[in-house]
Design a protein around this nucleic acid. Sequence first.
DNA 1: TGGTTCACG
DNA 2: ACGTACGTGAACCAC
Length: 596
Amino acid sequence: MEVRDAAGIGDLEPWLRSQHAVGVSVLLDDPRPRRGAPLALAVAGVDGRVVAGDGAEASDALRHLVEQTGVPLVGHEVKPILVAGFAEDPDRLPAPVAFDTQIAAYVLNAALRSQTIADVVAEQLDQILPSAAELPPTARAGLEALSALAVRDPLERRLADVQLDRLLREVELPLIAVLARMEAVGVALDRDALAALDREFRSEIDRLEREIYVDVGHDFNLGSPKQLEQILFFELNLPKGRRTKTGYSTDASVLEDLRPAHPMIDKLLEWRIYTKLRSTYVEALPTLIAADGRLHTTFHQAVASTGRLSSSDPNLQNIPIRTALGRRIRHAFVAGAPDLVLLAADYSQVELRILAHVSGDEHLKDAFARHADIHRETAARVLHKPPEEITADERSMAKMVNFGLAYGMSDFGLASRANIPRREAQEFINSYFAAYSGISYYMMAIKEQAKSQGFVETLLGRKRQIPELRAANPTLRGAGERMAINMPIQGTAADIQKIAMIRVAERLRGSGLDARLLLSVHDELLFETPRDQVEALAALVRETMEGALPLAVPLVVDVKVGDDWESMTPLTRADAIAAEADELPDEAVAAAPLAG
DNA sequence: TGGTTCACG
DNA sequence: ACGTACGTGAACCAC
């Protein structure tokens, strides 16, 4: 291996141009986008030559040369190299990605969480890689670049054997550059708004703490589950609820039942909400703002066993929205300049539509074809009543069942969430399956299929092995059955979202629009766009997302626009109606006049 | 490090 | 009889 400084990079150009692909690996002192400086970057040729740049200057020079020659990249986690390029210029064409061994290994077995290059080499080549900790950065990068090149062929053969090569080539690989660009672009955050929230939350927390200590009679650590358990169940002698491995549970559903029993419970619940929001968001997010004034998440493409993306450092897929207090945090996510706005496009009921498609259930398909209020429609069909006679409670129950379906819901689960007797929950579920026999049949069939072949798959063929289905332990086996029900639905939704992201990014490039894709939150895409281009962007995004994968039911996308991520207003009348049905509390929807 | 809790879809 | 709705990530406490 050759180690070079910045001055020794330039004369590598003829060699790079002679390679039809190169293995690449970068080692960063901080893995977060726009944070880390490279310690080393290595390039391995198909001719066996390996060159490593030593330090930030040489690594950047080598990366620039690779980008300039346009040689296709092979690596184990290529995204950080693309992020570095997009950080310099988000509008540049990225280096082409020929293969990513981390993502290939994930597609082959999504049940294992993120495999290292050493794991893949051991599996594919039956060789042990030297321990990375003992090697200098240049050697480590060189070894990884070469290893990635070496495991490509065996991985490609296995992918083709199980017909996963197209999923990798047409979805996962093109997605890498889309995600890299999103990470490099980031999202703007209003620091002052968060600072004000911090002051307000802190004073509420202080007040609640003082009041709770008075109610209890002495101080203790409210955040300690152990001390809290002692106070609640042994000092105040409140009724004990569910058990955990370590003691009695004090989670919100338990505390909810204890509210009438002691005045401190209400305050404790409120204290929990404030401290959660303060420590996870209000305090943490400002410290993660980069030099460009924006937040840059990292998307993980090889973690979730269903095919979904995840997000970390910070996680921007769990920014609060469900409560008014939480939404004040979302309010701090803003468009980055006065002439820009945010545009959010989300798939309406995508998982239930996928269930309608894969099960072929005629009644569910018909309801979606008619663009009916799906929860009301469900209640009406299950209870044998006209839709306009459905009460708020009945619609709410149907809504919970519709959500629970994709999770392999039990009567117990429904009963605890709907706060009804288990027997009633069981009756509703029975009536549901009688009314939607196609769904009932599908649930049995998918479990059988999963058991016989050991895995389940999405519409694009993405697979998840489920060894739990063969467990002797009935609890574990039950968990396996629920995974078997959920993965094809959640995973197909992920497939659709990924196709949409790739096509939207592609069409934006050729559109003359200046919009940027910022975030993907499972069934939602968030963009930043010049105000005067909103209409054109909305049309492009809606059409692309709705057409991502034709199903037996229409895919419907709701579009909203606003100056921040909280104050979003529906773009059209149809978006407004859909937003109302999807988001308002059930009572409001049941009370509202029918939309047509 | 593992357990608990809770933020999101 | 048994434990019980899928998938994530982060903060905090206890060991």
